[in-house]
Write a protein that binds this DNA or RNA. Structure first.
Lengths: 228, 228
DNA sequence: TATGAGTGTGATAATCGTGTGACAATGTGA
DNA sequence: TCACATTGTCACACGATTATCACACTCATA
């Protein structure tokens, strides 16, 4: 793991570098906006700690320029807690900010949180089809402009399974495999789960979507407007 | 303007005192931790220059004790090698640090910067979201126009954690990591801490914010006005 | 009409996650 | 030392989730 630390206060930069090294990071340093940009291109780090007040080119500009080309996690350091600055920073794509002064614990905690979030960004966290959105990370199903409803773990996976295979008939075998795993689950449970889903969804979203049964084959998710 | 200078190196203290007097400060001197604390209480200075290595009670302890009762700007003097010390100092609430050796010009520059910041009502250590303000240095939580309430160390970090990740669900793992550190903490403690926070907050601020549980996932901080 | 496989639905039990209170251990200041 | 706040540990209740069972219904077919 490589971290690029950008701060013109040499002592503070050293301190941060020390903390990062202790956590097992490889550290690259830069002291102004321009060199920060160059170092980023050359070294391809996994994380950037970026002071806002920098010579030559300020942190916001650097943040924006880098963000235009990469999803790398960026944490801003700022002395001002003016909400505008912080919000501005977020708007420019920063993943988090820390106001000086801060403790090593804080810094590391933020870094970990940001890295964790970044890692989880890759696998899709929301599955969409027509006006249906399934938020996998918060177990929520949202249809149109209706309020989202909470799904349990199994319900979520069932819904996901139906959405992935939308437009085709999903056999009980596939459902069991995707919801319960290789050697768990049962036709009875599938029926129950389907039933609970139907109740939950129809109660909240009357006449929006339906889970149809095809006798002898399996189930299929449909949008009510469907005429096919 | 009164400055309290705490250093057991008499020569250095005199040099600093001279520099401050030239800038129009009234100067008070102390040579060890205990007398520093007493002088602070008696004289009520506007700024403290505090050496870390002191007889009787070290600078960190003095810093923490004073910080518990006041927002007065504190600048720490450390030797360059103690990188841990610097961050530790920040953690204890110091506003800035200077590494020895330093020039009078440096010192004055830092002092001015710190005073400027202090005038902006101590902006460095407040986390805000909507009508919620968390004062990290005094362990206070303030919501809307209600009076602030005191939080313990763990409560503060938990609240901080929830605020940092506001809008997302925070898993117990993240909470444990941020509140207790890498290898401490327990699901039971998380539940307890959440419970204590809820009791404390709901008793003082009925119907303002809530800490919601999402079964199987974690917790999420919400403002009551939320309708999402 | 009777039969039986496939399916929908409700009731119920087992399990798990969570909230809450009580209390012990620990730290801190008087 | 004591009193007090903070923190850790445990036990238990309660509700949500999940598994299991019973039974009714549909519909093709004999």
């Amino acid at each position: 793991m490589k971290a690029l630390i950008v701060d013109d206060d040499r002592t503070l930069a050293d301190v941060i570098a020390f903390t990062f090294k202790r956590e097992g990071f490889e550290v690259i340093l830069a002291e102004d906006g321009e060199s920060a940009y160059r170092r980023w291109q050359d070294e391809n780090p996994d994380l950037i700690i970026l002071d806002v007040n920098l010579p030559k080119e300020d942190g916001f500009t650097v943040c924006r320029r880098i963000r235009e080309q990469s999803d790398i996690p960026i944490i801003l350091l700022t002395v001002r807690s003016d909400e505008e600055d912080i919000l501005g920073g977020f708007h420019l794509g920063a993943d988090d900010y820390i106001t000086k002064p801060f403790s090593p614990r804080q810094l590391i905690a933020r870094v970990k949180a940001v890295m964790r979030r970044a890692k989880k960004k890759n696998p899709a966290t929301v599955r969409e089809w027509r006006n249906i959105s399934l938020f996998l990370n918060r177990h929520e199903l949202k249809i149109g402009d209706y309020p989202p409803i909470q799904l349990s773990g199994l319900e979520l996976r069932m819904m996901d399974c139906l959405l992935i295979n939308v437009g085709q008939i999903v056999t009980p075998e596939i459902i069991i495999d995707q919801v319960w795993g290789p050697n768990g689950g049962d036709m009875d449970m599938v029926r129950q789960l389907i039933h609970r889903l139907r109740v939950k969804i129809d109660r909240k979203f009357p006449n929006q979507i339906s889970i149809d049964n095809v006798p002898g084959l399996g189930y299929e998710l449909k949008s009510i407007q469907d005429n096919d």
